[in-house]
Design a protein around this nucleic acid. Structure first.
Length: 882
RNA sequence: GCGCGUAUAGCUCAGUUGGUUAGAGCGCCACAUUGACAUUGUGGAGGUCCCUGGUUCAAGUCCAGGUACGCGCACCA
């Protein structure tokens, strides 16, 4: 009831109900959208970590993606926004390890199996909370297709990807130097290492005939090779010679090798190498065939190479080594002000130890037939070079190309427990790649798991059912029934190894002709006597006996008893698979800080495995910082919680504040004031609706008609404006300027001018119609309040979320957007506006007290006399003829 | 070291391919309250567009050089 509409919009009351309404409609699911929808539009939601707290960065991502999805859905596309979560191996394992620590336990106390159970419980407990948080901001994603990187279908995709790459020789196992985090007890990829500047003493030691410098004396036990530059005159006489050198543990034999890697200008120009614990030295050692010795172990302690210091942690060992060398008089000098780039783990900030270890790698520089002789790297470079994939803003293309060009083989094995276990099985010297235990005795699986980004890199297609390899057949008599999509179950006596979320081909059993796909919704194992007679994908059976006969016909080799296991597959029939319909996805929207971790790897994997780019456009948003420009973090306590803000100001206001006033790829500063500002705007929109509701209450409205100058002005402005924001706005991802201009139009054109004139002229029907168009334009930005007003004002029975985007003549009442007419009207109307503004100023300058009429003069011949009523009302003056 | 970004009102930021007098929001000042909205309305103040030079009839915008801040990559004996 309009008269009961509150003066101020109450988002908290409204938003929950609106989301339920949307959910109930089913329109988040592209299969259930009305209309023909021949074009598809899809976005994979970058999966939040399973650890479950949504921060303001997620809110930006959700606001922008929902804006795009809602816009395209209203424009009549078949839109899919596929949500999910990432198991985030290290991050999640860390959280659970922390909580164990609080109980005084470690993961080893529990053992692998129990520990994984514990993680799974934790992740399951967070699942709903993530979903609720995503929902809270109004995200219109298709929950029926929600995925998790560890669920069966995606795990199958991981195995298939691994096997394909392995069989093609692109995945190999090797002893190589890797980044090792002694706390996580795992390897890290190159880009999982961060660098922090730290002041460290830098030592110069006498080492036989030369002086060497190092910041890490404790790694130097096994240095037996001196490298000098081949052109360095100082050392030419010693190149190739052996020396006996007094060193940490006594005398050792060292030899001198010439290599251009030594920089004559640096220090003494001579260096020793530590191939087991330095990337550069490792390469040099391989080149000169130098023995690689392990000095530091996986716990960050010294090995037997350190003699009696075996087992010492690195920090203590360093002091001791320096003492020893000092006592021997081998210290030349110490630079106390040396700034060292300390490498640390991106998940736990522990200093990383480079060490040599047997790991699995993905070769990025190896040509493969799958890519017509290109390498993963060259193909990944090509798609950006050719603009097959567009980056917004463009500059990230350069950053990407630079990174990709310098990419080394990717270490994909991790020594943590949570994640996809490497699908490699050993039996003696035999190796099999498989997701499950191969047939026969004595197989053991690799203990390591895969880098969490391995599964993330498959996300755009693994979530859409890739790989489709499995197949189910139906008797010819059932093909039409399956196609009709009416029945959703089938029973099988043989395991087709299908799990929920997977898609398989389906064919006519007799002709083997494929006729579409089954998207498996549920897969369960039951007993034969649990088969329901009626709710089946086959024709209903009249009796158990008939059921038995039928099954015996199809499975003559199986002796059926009541206990015979039966696989029950519940499915949705799809003429085209999700993969065909929605891949490549339309837009990848993400923060720029995961361009390498995720975006680059998706491109490599998708171009190789699916032979398709994973997305056509990548839109990068910036990071949200506090009002001082600092990164928001728990430790600083400067974070703004998007959900708390949504409770306080409404989700619409939060969304607006994250979208408007920002530009792609640039960081934004946010403070609560800004959100409060957009709350005011939402309230303004609400009150426009409230006004119209009051004006139209109980009245039978006429068809909206364009009568006055103001009517013409508002309709022609809006028509032009809506075209502009659609084609050179939202299609080009300029969300901020578009949002601002709709804001401007709604508040300062429509409310401040047009509605004030409507109060004089009374064309409420047109005002309401125009507001309907505005609600559509505003909907992707502020979905809740607009949907609510759409229903209060009863524009039609349907939901605003699927109302057609205003670009047709019908919306503008057949008004022809003729540039000349538009400009004429604008000119004429601006005369009126100018007059009003001028008279207001005159009134102000005259200092006329409120409530008293102020007489102003207007030329008797002025055409403005025809708008006398409007001018007198809006400027609160009395016109007199001059 | 290489590369990228940013610099416009007190604050946060817009400013398409160069084109009248450089815009918005917040904040500030003054006035206004029964008539949708004080989460409001009306009017106003506020700018050396980082610096230097160049191209041009015309530069916030294009070019060159520089300064400051931020970021990425590399180096790190």
């Amino acid at each position: 009831m309009p008269q009961e509409l509150p003066k101020a919009y109450e988002p908290k009351e409204v938003e929950k109900a609106i989301y339920l309404k949307w959910g109930k409609s089913g329109f988040f699911n592209p299969d259930k959208l009305p209309g023909k929808r021949s074009k598809n539009f899809s976005i994979s939601l970058p999966p939040p970590n399973a650890t479950g707290i949504l921060h303001i960065g997620h809110a930006v991502m959700l606001a922008i993606q929902d804006l795009l999805i809602r816009f395209e859905r209203m424009r009549g596309k078949k839109t899919l926004w596929l949500p999910g979560t990432d198991h985030a191996a290290i991050a999640t394992q860390n959280v659970v390890e922390q909580s164990l620590k609080a109980e005084g336990k470690t993961k080893n106390d529990l053992g692998r199996e129990k520990f994984l159970e514990r993680i799974n419980e934790y992740v399951a407990s967070k699942r709903n909370s993530i979903r609720e948080q995503v929902v809270r901001l109004g995200s219109s994603c298709d929950w029926s297709r929600e995925r998790f990187t560890l669920d069966a279908g995606l795990s199958n995709a991981v195995v298939t990807a691994f096997k394909t790459l392995y069989d093609d020789g692109l995945i190999y196992r090797g002893d190589r130097i890797v980044n090792w985090c002694p706390r996580c007890q795992s390897t890290l990829a190159d880009d999982e290492v961060e660098y922090i500047e730290k002041k460290t003493p830098f030592f110069y030691f006498k080492y036989g005939p030369v002086v060497i410098g190092t910041a890490r004396p404790e790694t130097k036990f096994g240095d037996k090779v001196i490298i000098v530059h081949p052109d360095d005159k100082r050392y030419q006489n010693i190149v190739g010679k052996d020396f006996e050198v007094e060193w940490i543990l006594g005398k050792i034999k060292a030899r001198v090798i010439a290599d251009p890697a030594a920089d004559p200008a640096m220090g003494s120009g001579a260096m020793t190498i530590t191939p087991g614990h330095s990337f550069v030295d490792f390469e040099l050692a391989k080149k000169h065939n130098i023995e690689i010795e392990k000095i530091i172990d996986e716990r960050g302690c010294l090995t037997e190479a350190a003699g009696e210091m075996k087992g010492w942690p690195v920090r203590e060992a360093r002091k001791r080594v320096v003492e020893i060398l000092r006592a021997k008089g081998l210290i030349e000098k110490v630079d106390e002000n040396y700034i060292h780039n300390l490498s640390v783990c991106y998940r736990c900030n522990t200093p990383v130890e480079p060490l040599v270890s047997k790991q699995w790698f993905l070769a990025v520089d190896q040509p493969t037939k799958q890519l017509n002789g290109k390498t993963l790297k060259t193909r990944a470079l090509e798609v950006i070079d050719n603009k097959e994939i567009e980056f917004v803003p463009e500059r990230f293309g350069k950053i990407y190309l630079h990174w990709m060009t310098n990419l080394h083989d990717w270490c994909i094995s991790r020594q943590i427990w949570y994640g996809h276990r490497i699908p490699v099985w050993h039996r003696g010297k035999e190796i099999v790649v498989s997701g499950s235990n191969p047939k026969g005795e004595g197989w053991s699986q690799e203990i390591d798991t895969l880098d969490t980004w391995f599964s993330s890199s498959l996300w755009t297609f693994s979530t859409l059912g890739w790989p489709i390899t499995k197949e189910i057949g139906f008797d010819a008599s059932l093909v039409d029934l399956v196609k009709s999509g009416k029945k959703t179950k089938t029973f099988r006596l043989r395991d087709h190894d299908l799990s929920a979320g997977e898609t398989c081909f389906t064919h006519d059993s007799k002709t083997k002709k494929k006729f579409g796909y089954l998207h498996i919704v549920r897969a369960t194992k039951i007993r034969f006597d649990e088969i329901e007679l009626h709710a089946v994908g086959h024709e209903p059976y009249k009796s158990r006996a008939e059921l038995n006969t039928t099954f015996q016909k199809y499975y003559p080799d199986i002796a059926i008893t009541s206990d015979t296991p039966v696989w029950l597959y519940e499915f949705v029939y799809q003429k085209k698979s999700d993969l065909e319909l929605f891949h490549p996805t339309s837009v990848m929207e993400t923060a720029y800080d995961i361009i390498f971790f995720w975006v680059a790897r998706m491109i490599m994997m998708s171009t190789y495995l699916v032979k398709e780019i994973p997305f056509k456009t990548v839109y990068f948003h910036g990071l949200v910082r506090d009002k001082k420009g600092r990164k928001m973090s728990k430790s600083l306590g400067n974070g703004i919680d998007p959900l708390e803000m949504a409770d306080k100001y409404g989700a619409d206001a939060v969304r607006l504040s994250l979208i408007i006033g920002t530009s792609p790829g640039n960081d934004q500063k946010l403070d609560e004031q800004k959100i409060a500002g957009y709350r005011n705007y939402v309230n303004k929109v609400w009150n426009i609706g409230r006004f119209l509701a009051m004006q139209t209450k109980g009245k039978k409205l006429n068809q909206p008609k364009i009568k006055s100058l103001a009517d013409k002005w508002i309709i022609s402005q809006l028509q032009y404006f809506s075209q502009v924001i659609t084609t050179i706005g939202l299609e080009r991802y300029t969300f901020s300027p578009v949002g601002e201009s709709v804001y401007e139009f709604t508040w300062h054109f429509f409310a401040d001018w047009y509605l004030e004139i409507v109060k004089v002229e009374g064309n409420v029907a047109l005002a309401k119609h125009i507001f309907g168009i505005l609600l559509k334009l505003l909907h992707p930005y502020m979905p809740f309040v607009t949907e609510h007003l759409w229903s209060i004002l009863k524009y039609d029975e349907g939901l605003l979320m699927i109302a057609p985007w205003p670009d047709s003549g019908k919306d503008f009442l057949g008004w022809k957007d003729d540039k000349k007419t538009r400009e004429d009207i604008e000119m004429e109307f601006s005369e009126l506006m100018k007059a009003v503004i001028d008279f207001r100023r005159q009134r102000k300058e005259a200092g006329t007290p409120a409530g008293q009429p102020c007489e102003v003069k207007l030329d008797a011949k002025s055409p403005l006399w025809q708008d006398q009523a409007i001018i007198e009302k809006l400027a609160r003056v009395k016109l007199v003829k001059a």
